[in-house]
């Protein structure tokens, strides 16, 4: 039974041997929704091991009393992961959502035992839509009286993501550098153009001019050709 069409496998066998959470994580992780689900023993084992690692990490975590200051890159990773899982859920990209939770777990494991509560809780919250039983159990273990089903989805701080992630965008008018903007990566020509036009140094060279064309190199440069 190494690789075959998923539908020949009896879900009861999976639930019995690995649990429903593993069956859920496996079925969402193995393939994107529009593709056939291929069955693999390793895939299921992998899902089960992942949940086991989350379980032990949270259980072995006692408190964040001795975490004096959250590491900057950990804060960044938490915000990144929350954003990624949120966006992926909206877009039906369940497999990539789960893999970013896995990456997050890997990093947190290396920090053991000095993990801030915010990270431990975010990990459990992000897991809740996929593996709700283990998430409830760990949420309770972390001292919450309320069900995780009623808990609030974690939010990310866009400012943190932008600050670290920003790129330097060179703004030229007729090929002469007039300003350098710090913007979020991946902005469209329109977004950069708007930001550049708001800049005073740029504005005065564009005033009363006819725009002939715009040259745009994503994440690098925008050049307004005017006459």
């Amino acid at each position: 039974m190494s690789k075959s069409k998923g539908n020949v496998v009896d879900p009861d066998y999976l639930i019995e041997k690995y649990g429903a959470d593993t069956a859920r994580v496996f079925s969402l992780f193995a393939a994107p929704p529009e593709k056939d689900l291929d069955w693999s023993d390793q895939g299921v084992e992998g899902g089960y091991r992942f949940l086991g690692r989350v379980y032990r990490l949270v259980h072995n975590w006692t408190s964040d009393d001795d975490v004096k200051e959250a590491k900057k890159d950990l804060v960044l990773l938490r915000n990144k992961t929350i954003k990624k899982v949120t966006d992926d859920l909206e877009r039906f990209h369940f497999n990539t959502a789960i893999s970013s939770i896995m990456e997050y777990l890997n990093v947190l494991q290396k920090e053991t035992p000095k993990i801030p509560r915010a990270d431990i809780e975010s990990l459990v919250l992000l897991l809740a839509p996929f593996a709700p039983h283990i998430a409830e159990e760990l949420w309770q273990h972390l001292g919450h009286q309320e069900l995780i089903a009623h808990a609030t989805w974690p939010t990310f701080d866009a400012a943190i993501l932008n600050a670290v992630d920003s790129v330097k965008m060179v703004v030229q008018v007729n090929g002469v550098v007039r300003a350098t903007l710090e913007v979020a990566p991946g902005l469209s020509q329109e977004e950069v153009s708007m930001a550049a036009r708001r800049d005073e140094k740029v504005q005065k060279y564009l005033q009363d001019k006819n725009l002939v064309k715009v040259v745009f190199v994503p994440n690098r440069l925008i050049n307004f050709v005017v006459s």
Binding site: N7, D10, L28, P33, L37, A128, H150, A151, T152
Partner: peptide
């Protein structure tokens, strides 16, 4: 009996439902 197609289909729906509830 449910088959893996059901498991996936309804796991997707459930992930969305739980996510939206938390939001």
């Amino acid at each position: 009996r449910i088959h893996m197609g059901h498991v996936r289909n309804y796991s997707i729906g459930d992930a969305i439902a739980r996510f939206k509830k938390m939001r």
